[in-house]
Amino acid sequence: MNLLRVIKTSAMTMIALAFSASVFAMSLQDAKDQGLVGELRNGYLGVAVSSQEVESLVKDINQKRKIAYADIAERNNLTLDQVAARAGIKNLERTQVGLLVENAQGQLVKK
């Protein structure tokens, strides 16, 4: 019976940890919906409301975007900046009304 109690306790602990991790894990869409981040004209994300979690999310997404842009640039004989700028235009166009985008003055504002 002692082994059964240990298994039950372990299972409950694992469930609690999984639940708490999912509560604190922020998706890009969550961050956008909450007005914490916005799309920049240069193809990357910008931070509107700084926190460690938001900064980490933006850094991760921007690194992934840079890798993807570099791959596209290499395959199409373009520069990284050219691809990022084109992606920035597309990202701004695709952003839903009410979410943050960078304006011509470099500020994150609601679209």
Rank of each mutant, 00 (worst) to 15 (best):
M1D: 02
N2V: 05
L3G: 11
V6R: 07
V6P: 00
I7W: 08
I7T: 03
T9P: 01
M12T: 12
T13R: 10
T13A: 08
T13G: 13
M14T: 06
M14C: 11
I15V: 11
I15R: 11
A18V: 12
S22H: 15
V23Q: 15
A25H: 11
A25P: 08
A25T: 12
S27K: 07
L28W: 01
L28P: 06
Q29R: 12
Q29S: 07
A31I: 00
K32C: 00
Q34E: 13
Q34L: 09
G35W: 02
L36K: 06
V37Q: 02
L40Q: 14
L40R: 04
R41H: 14
G43F: 09
G43Q: 04
G43E: 01
Y44A: 13
Y44N: 05
Y44K: 07
Y44R: 14
L45G: 04
L45V: 03
V47P: 01
A48Q: 09
V49H: 05
S51I: 03
Q52M: 13
V54R: 01
L57I: 02
L57Q: 00
V58M: 09
K59Q: 12
K59H: 06
K59G: 00
D60C: 06
N62A: 03
R65Q: 02
R65I: 10
R65F: 01
K66F: 12
K66S: 11
I67C: 01
I67G: 04
Y69P: 00
A70D: 08
I72M: 03
I72V: 07
I72W: 01
A73Q: 01
N76V: 03
N76Q: 04
N77G: 06
L78C: 05
L78V: 10
L80W: 04
Q82R: 08
V83T: 03
A84P: 14
A84C: 05
A84S: 05
R86L: 08
A87V: 12
G88L: 00
G88D: 01
I89R: 11
I89N: 06
K90Q: 12
L92M: 08
L92P: 00
E93D: 13
R94S: 14
R94G: 07
T95L: 08
Q96P: 07
V97I: 15
V97Q: 14
V97S: 12
G98D: 12
L99F: 04
V101Y: 03
V101I: 05
E102M: 03
N103T: 06
A104D: 12
A104R: 15
G106N: 04
G106A: 02
L108H: 00
K111Y: 03
